[in-house]
Amino acid sequence: MAKWQSKRPAEGFGIGQYLMLGAAVTVIFFLCICAGSVSLPLKETLRILTGRSAGDLADAIILHVRLPRVLATALVGASLSLCGAVMQGLLRNPLADGATLGVSSGASLGAVLAITFGVQIPGLPGGGIMFFAIMFSFLSLLLILSLSYRLDYSFSTNTIILVGVIFSMFCSSLINLLMTFAGEKLQAITFWTMGSLSGSTYGGVLTLWVALTVCGGILLCHARELNAFAVGEDNARHIGVDVRRVKLMVLIVVSVLIGVCVSIGGTIAFVGLVIPHITRMLTGPNHKKLLPATLFLGAGFLMLADLVSRVLLSPLELPIGVVTSMVGSVMFVYIFYSSRKVGR
């Protein structure tokens, strides 16, 4: 397996650095609220955000369009990068994340099925899509892992990724098949496959917040176990980690979180893959430092990507998945190249 070496020492990453990250995310947050097809000065934005609204167009833009969107973007970014960091530790593979493992595609397939067949949960708008996305996300994870176990007794991570990629392709072909017969629902389906946070609501923000608080809390509590897994699964077992319980717990939590993110923002690739790598360069591989820091970086990165998608070809809006994939793949190649150079 590839050895990934960070360029900087992990020493000294503490409260000061977290505060700096927090400050940077706050600056990005305000930048994203102010900038867009209609730019608003910071002073006016602050006035509206502090509740002194004048009831004009600017109010409507900020309170009903930008604020829920930016908040949802930050939460999705934080969640996806947290899931990526956790999966990379758990499977001891720097290439793992929700997308490479096929979990995101599975969740998308669930969402697309729910849209195509109009699945609804009474009294909960969008609940059917969310339920299907979470259920399919978990089912795909189970399928990928059990198939990998059967194919390869040693449960090598390469097998898992190979199976994940194949499963992803299978899901994509099913989604394409559904799209062929979707008729007037085609546009709604396209949304899931490209990823977009343009229609975010406060309901979505609340759901994401609850999911991230609960799931993120559970994952952060497992930082020591994740360190053990990142060193090696056998070693984790030998030092007393309940490997089966922790693995199942972490995988369930990750698939729930990815399912919620996909049901709200669609498939957004590369965030979960690239951000944990960048964070590891700052904090080192210790999950106690890595996981909290990756939340900040993920949130900041996705907010910026969303801003780019909004303003680059304004008033035309790019799907956020396109922006993250473009930026992410270039960043990934750079990280891979520089870490290899260190390893020589």
Binding site: R224, A228, H238, G284, N286
Partner: peptide
């Protein structure tokens, strides 16, 4: 306590972090 013959650590943990994991139990 078990000491295996092969170790392949994928990430660059420090020696101390690895040793400290021994206290997990």
């Amino acid at each position: 306590g078990v000491l295996m013959q092969n170790h392949c650590v994928g990430y660059d943990f420090t020696v101390e972090e690895i040793v400290r994991l021994g206290r997990y139990a």
